[in-house]
Design a protein around this nucleic acid. Structure first.
Lengths: 337, 337
DNA sequence: TTGAAAGCGCTAACAG
DNA sequence: CTGTTAGCGCTTTCAA
């Protein structure tokens, strides 16, 4: 058993109350006493029990983070930024992987509720009611997701989102300027709020420019998902060329990477035959070939904003990460049909 | 404030002790009473406080996991497998990112010590003494790392490692059989135990086959690290051809991907001019071009074994993940100098 | 400035 | 089978 505050108090010849005060740096204790307690504590290699403290104070010094997939670089970047930021304030992080399922997410919330001060839900797959219910139990930070406009926002809920509009709108205009007259969008997971945002932004801009938009559903928002989704619709070079999508926008960079791979396998040249745009700017230089034109929407920034929402008691009720288009080498002039 | 067991007991007309027994499914309570308590509990939407329970029982139902980098796919796979396995047993996971630094790792251990039942240290950058000290405070599972042979292994320490010998030895023999007569190894981080294992396995096998081995140091074990490390030593095609490494083995797949990228930039063909071998088999099909010959050493398997070490009280003191060579398209016949 | 005592929510002897 | 009681380690009134 580890040393307790009682042992420290005894060894220092004071009461536990005084020991507690000394250890928490209260000024209601005379310096000489405090120093004695502190010295004894370090001699005894004393570490305060978080559990005891939590029970007494009602605050745990931990936060809970629930992600749809710990393996996805987007969430990994989010988690890294968030963890680093809160760790500096000596706050611990309980993680849960919901595997994209609402039931598991619910269970994880249940599990964490009692032992964290704040819950961070990244890209929650839960319905609005469940999110609202959670925020009735403890403060919640919703990241990369927003409640429906009709849902009243609970006081203890903060929302951090990515405004994909500027980036995706610019992406469409960029393709249009290159001469493309039809856009294909490879969508994200079924219940993804951000996927809907992206689709909406595309729909809006395509309507303005009078461009037809085709949306392709996809299972998993990763490399293999992108490969599989596109492989189904891309004919071999030399086959029926009329239905090759010439301008493709992907849900994220991983998916775009999969597209690049599927296109290469089928013998198509990027950007010669087909233009591809990703999202997140998450790939190191040289990872994609050709270098990927992408919508910048850093998940690390999202994580940093979530951290701020957790740490600053009077952070704004909502915050937004802006996006913009980064043009690189995977987009080019449309070829004549 | 959430409902407490006292309120449940009162509402059910029993003592807290009986309520506690009913809720924990003890058979020392008559069914009718138990059902009543259970019904009241669910009516009141009661969730037991983990904190209270932990303090009373001395066990928290949480484990701590410390990784050098949550962003690295190797640890991400490890964490995912570990988290999924323990979550099924309703065990929570506190994560900490040590950013490859021993000091931060020490701080995280300190922070977690009081509130987890077991500590899982992945690729710990700590010295043996620090690891031994930690295992004196609570059970520790060391993953992808082993104490020095001279260090006595504490009773509460479990070690899960990857035996790179078979895979790396096969890699060298494979290259030798293809006619290669010199090997270059792109090493891992400075204090990495697994990096040393790999280097040793290569040294041993190269000595047996009388092959010269060149080791190149590297900063970060990722795509950019691999690109940077190789870019320094690879001349442009058409430049001084005599010093191009013709057979390269990388610390991991990410690094190998970086190599592929750097080689392509310099105009070299893989496997025509240069053969490249990775490690981990962590890339989806099509991610590397050409498909990467690699040493299979799944970090998910490592995570699953770590989970077993955490969950099974009498798991073996140590376990090992085996490795083997998977030959794909990135290795080919040596060209005449 | 310090100490005694109550209590955070729960479990676990020990009686009955 | 059920209730009483004593803590787990800590903070925090309230008195002294």
């Amino acid at each position: 058993m580890a040393t307790t505050i009682r042992q420290v108090a005894a060894a220092a010849g004071v009461s536990v109350a005084t020991a507690s005060r000394a250890l928490s740096g209260s000024d209601a204790v005379v310096p000489v006493t405090r120093d004695r307690v502190l010295r004894v504590a370090s001699d005894l290699d004393y570490t305060p029990s978080r559990l005891g403290r939590s029970l007494a104070t009602g605050s745990t010094g931990n936060i809970g983070v629930i992600l749809p997939d710990v393996t996805n670089p987007f969430y990994t970047g989010f988690l890294a930024a968030l963890e680093s930021a809160v760790a500096e304030r000596d706050i611990g992080v309980l993680v849960g992987d919901s595997h994209e399922t609402p039931e598991l997410e619910r269970r994880l919330i249940q599990r964490m509720a009692g032992q964290v001060d704040t819950l961070v839900l990244a890209s929650s797959r839960l319905g609005d009611e469940a999110v609202v219910a959670a925020s009735a139990r403890l403060p919640v930070v919703l990241a990369n997701r927003m409640l429906e406009a009709a849902t009243p926002v609970p006081a203890r809920l903060r929302q951090i989102t990515i405004d994909v509009e500027p980036g995706f709108s610019a992406a469409v205009r960029h393709l249009h300027a290159l001469g493309h007259r039809a856009i294909t969008y490879i969508d994200g997971p079924a219940h993804s709020w951000s996927g809907r945002q992206k689709a909406q932004a595309l729909t809006r801009t395509c309507a303005q420019l009078d461009l037809p938009l085709t949306t392709v559903a996809m299972t998993r928002p990763d490399f293999e998902g992108g490969r599989a989704a596109l492989a189904r619709i891309v004919p071999q070079r030399g086959g029926a060329r009329w239905d090759v999508p010439r301008a493709i926008i992907a849900f994220n960079d991983q998916v775009a990477l999969g597209l690049l791979s599927a296109l290469r396998d089928a013998g198509w040249d990027v950007p010669g035959d087909v233009s591809v745009i990703g999202c997140d700017d998450s790939l190191p230089t040289g990872m994609a070939w050709p270098a990927l034109t992408t919508v910048d929407s850093s998940s690390r920034t999202l994580g940093a904003l979530a951290a701020a929402a957790v740490l600053e008691p009077d952070a704004p009720r909502s915050a937004t990460v802006q996006t913009r288009l980064i043009v690189r080498d995977s987009t080019g002039r449309a070829v004549a049909g």
